[in-house]
Design a protein around this nucleic acid. Structure first.
Length: 445
RNA sequence: GUGGUAGUAGCUCAAUGGCAGAGUACUUGAUUGUGGAUCAAGUGGUUGCGGGUUCGAGCCCCGUCUACCACCCCA
């Protein structure tokens, strides 16, 4: 009988149990922090109406959207969600009477983009978004940075920095330097490469885009108004007194900095960087992006304020700011850096109950049932073949089950159970009734 | 979407155009109340897939798929 070669579409992945347990650890950590900051869960469908998604991201991005249909209809063209932000905007406009504002929601769910895959970059990937709808204050933006830094710390990241900029400042810079409004998008694209191609590279690219050399020179001075902490803002402000929009952007960043200080965010985790630009067209105010200092991965988180987006679905927009945590990149980096706690990633099983012989199988089965009733994740040995304790231990060892429970004829006669902890080969014998407590005591913290 | 590198046993990799191999993993045994270590034996392949050149192709050529890298863009 002919069979199909098993394979996956490009950029899509399976996750076997060990990898899945590591993913769960990261997602659970993120969810706990979301709750800690008072965000509520939201779920939306994988598919949206095509019209909901198109016209929100810009032409380049929209070529990456997966479109969907079923075999019998060409009505209601559909598309797979490209991010979680536009679905949020739709939900806010659709259910505004049912929501309590400010609306703080989080969503952890897969999104799809038809990009050419690479490490840390897939066609199906999870985003973990937290957004605050209905707050124009920079207090909201500062909370998102605080939340992000908390997640990064909880996962064990050290060599990470959150770069912060402001769209108004970038626009103001461009206008102040004399860049035509129509060329602002080109300007952003080139400026964003500052890290990669350096000041000279950016200047060259800007000239190549037809921007006058004198304008480019002014632009480069503005961009390089760097400095530690608030000093960068002082330098930029001095240079850009003439631009109302730039002054507004700087004032927002100062405001944000005050809230961040009060939130006790370690200053080593963030910096103001006027060369950081985010691609998505809908940002209007502060923007932020986290990068691993070791490089090789692009941004591991990104977000910003998009005060106009909800206006695409509603008469009046609502001020909104949001952040997206790139857990796929967290996970790839954590694999590289070995940041998982030792007990994450083996198995969910806490104890294996062995079968000593056919005569004692029923007793072992009853014991497994007792352990499960007591809340312990318990596997009862079931592999086919001869019942040899050696095999059963080997099975537990390979599967990284921490505890092995032995109930042989001697133990049954005495009303006790023997437990071996594989990590240190220690054996403990306890009265049967005490077994659940004993197992809990022996498990890794 | 553009350009580049690679693909051989489950995994990591060998093999001048001339018999497709090693390490590791896996199975069994040494070991009839106990995993890891050691020793022995064994299983495992349409060399990603499809064409072409050649007496002969893992190796050369074309196409294709996938992964990775650099762009583009982004989580």
């Amino acid at each position: 009988m002919p069979h199909l070669k098993p394979r996956l579409p490009r950029g899509f992945r399976d996750f076997l149990p060990e990898a899945m347990l590591k993913r769960d650890y990261v997602i659970t950590t993120v969810r706990e922090v979301f709750h800690r900051y008072g965000f509520e869960p939201l779920q939306t469908p994988v598919l949206e109406l095509r019209e909901t998604l198109f016209g929100k991201y810009g032409e380049d991005a929209e070529q990456l959207i997966f479109e969907a249909q079923h075999g019998r209809s060409d009505k209601d063209p559909l598309a797979m969600r490209y991010d979680l932000t536009v679905p949020l905007a739709r939900v806010v406009a659709q259910y505004e009477n049912d929501l309590k504002f400010p609306f703080r929601r989080y969503q952890i769910a897969p999104v799809w983009r038809g990009e050419r895959p690479q490490r840390g970059r897939y066609r199906e990937f999870y985003q973990c978004d937290a957004d605050i709808v209905g707050v124009g204050s920079m207090a909201a933006d500062a909370e998102l940075i605080s939340l992000l830094v908390t997640v990064l710390q909880r996962l064990g990241f050290v060599e990470v920095v959150v770069k912060i900029n402001n769209r108004k400042l970038l626009t103001g810079m461009g206008q102040y330097a004399g860049v035509e409004t129509a060329q602002l998008a080109d300007l952003y694209r080139s400026v964003d490469k500052f890290d990669k191609i350096g000041a000279d590279g950016v200047a060259e690219e800007l000239r190549g885009r037809g921007i006058a050399p004198a304008v480019v020179a002014r632009m480069m001075t503005l961009l390089q108004a760097q400095g530690p902490g608030l000093a960068a803002l002082d330098a930029a402000e001095t240079l850009m007194q003439g631009s109302a929009e730039a002054r507004e952007g700087i004032a927002e960043l100062r405001d944000m900095a005050q809230h961040m200080a009060a939130l006790n965010i370690p200053p080593a985790f963030y910096e103001f960087d006027f060369t950081m630009v985010r691609g998505l067209g809908y940002y209007t105010g502060p923007i932020f992006e986290a990068v691993f200092k070791g490089g090789g991965m692009g941004s591991i988180s990104g977000g910003g304020r998009y005060d106009q987006l909800i206006g695409m679905f509603r008469k009046e927009s609502l001020p909104t700011t949001g952040i997206s945590l790139g857990i796929e990149r967290f996970i790839d980096l954590m694999d590289d850096l070995n940041l998982y706690p030792a007990h994450i990633g083996g198995t969910v099983v806490q104890a294996l109950v062995t079968i000593f012989s056919e005569d004692t199988r029923a007793e072992s089965t009853r014991l497994a049932a007792e352990l499960r009733a007591a809340g312990l994740c318990t596997e009862l040995y079931m592999a086919e073949g001869k019942l040899k304790l050696g095999k059963q231990f080997e099975y537990a060892d390979k599967k990284r089950i921490p505890l092995v429970v032995i109930l042989g004829s001697d133990e049954i006669a005495q009303g006790v159970v023997k437990v071996k902890r594989l990590a240190d080969a220690s054996e403990t014998t306890v009265p049967r009734a005490d077994l659940p407590a004993a197992l809990r005591h022996l498990l890794p913290a």
